[in-house]
Design a protein around this nucleic acid. Structure first.
Lengths: 189, 189
DNA sequence: CCTACCGATCGGTAGG
DNA sequence: CCTACCGATCGGTAGG
């Protein structure tokens, strides 16, 4: 039991925002989580919204980095698609609370930061579409396919993983990537 | 401008719960929506939770009926899969507010009703799995496929439609069904 | 369906 | 980091 740090507060906030939502988490709940009174948190952070901004921005960076790496993966569009899926799974399973807050609580952001998150998501979706379009050209995927719509379908699957995946279940992260890639690739072929 | 009915209140509640969430909607907001004070709503309903229960249960019935019809569709498992997808799209686009509340606000339900909704969802998912399993047997889909996982993937796509589909956009409901069926069937073949 | 109100809870602050 | 507190908002009620 050492002194509470700002990072302790941010981590605990991510846990509670992911589990109960931003509106469903009070500063008193958060204080209890780190062993302080709600009012004492203001010695560490300026307010509740600041915590949300920080956590969502961390998620934004994680997904952005993952998408860039996928795009820089050498090989065919199939290889890049696989890297995109593997990267997404890595972010979600490796940073569950941050990913959940990023994916589900952005609506609680102030308008300025919400616009930033929407822009980040558009870029992320755009990267996937680039990969799909390149794959139509290089013969990885069937032609006549609509990259915009197929991109939405793929992201729908990826963005729902945190709602059903159980880390202590029978499916490893690696086999999840295999299953996702198998299903999606078939859908594109 | 006639007298406000209970049905007016339920419909308005569906609209607000779908747009702002259950917790994000106050009884005063709802009163304003129907032209009353928040406190006057208690002449029509017992409480806020009752409204949520009623709307979510309507969604539950819609999806349940749709799934049953899909299962009773004559033909191969492919035909049933198509009916399942078409039915789901019909419910979501035909009853957007109810579907959104059912899909996104069930967490705000009291424990008893929440358990009912989870059971209804399990049944719905089970119906899809039955179709997938039958399709593996009758050769509609490739063998070696995991009905549980593929069912989750398909439902992930279907349950996200309300988040991006625009009724006034270029995609008709019929062509959405075609695109969904095309992508999913390829993923299973 | 409104007036007038209640107790609970919220994010946040002053002062130490 | 706590004590003591504030104004705002919430779901809901009594009485008409």
């Amino acid at each position: 039991m050492t002194r509470t740090t700002r990072e302790d507060v941010v981590t605990a906030a991510g846990r509670l925002f992911a589990a109960d939502g931003y509106d469903g988490t009070s500063m008193r709940d958060l204080g209890r989580e780190v062993g302080l009174l709600g009012s004492s948190l203001y010695a560490h952070v300026e307010g509740k919204q600041e915590l949300l901004v920080e956590i969502v921005m961390r998620g934004s960076v994680l997904f952005e980095d993952s998408a860039r790496e996928a795009l820089e993966t050498p090989g065919t569009a199939r290889d890049q698609l696989r890297a995109f899926i593997a990267g997404h799974v890595g972010v979600v399973l490796g940073h569950l609370d941050v990913a959940r807050t990023f994916l589900n609580e952005a609506q609680a952001l102030d308008p300025g930061h919400r616009a930033q998150v929407i822009a980040a998501r558009d870029t992320y979706e755009g990267t996937l579409r680039e990969i799909l379009a390149a794959g139509i050209d290089d013969g990885s995927f069937r032609s006549g396919l609509d990259p915009k719509l197929e991109g939405i379908f793929i992201l729908s699957i990826l963005n729902a993983i945190d709602r059903w995946y159980q880390a202590d279940g029978a499916i490893t992260a690696a086999s999840l990537v295999d299953e996702l890639y198998g299903f999606v690739l078939a859908g594109l072929s």
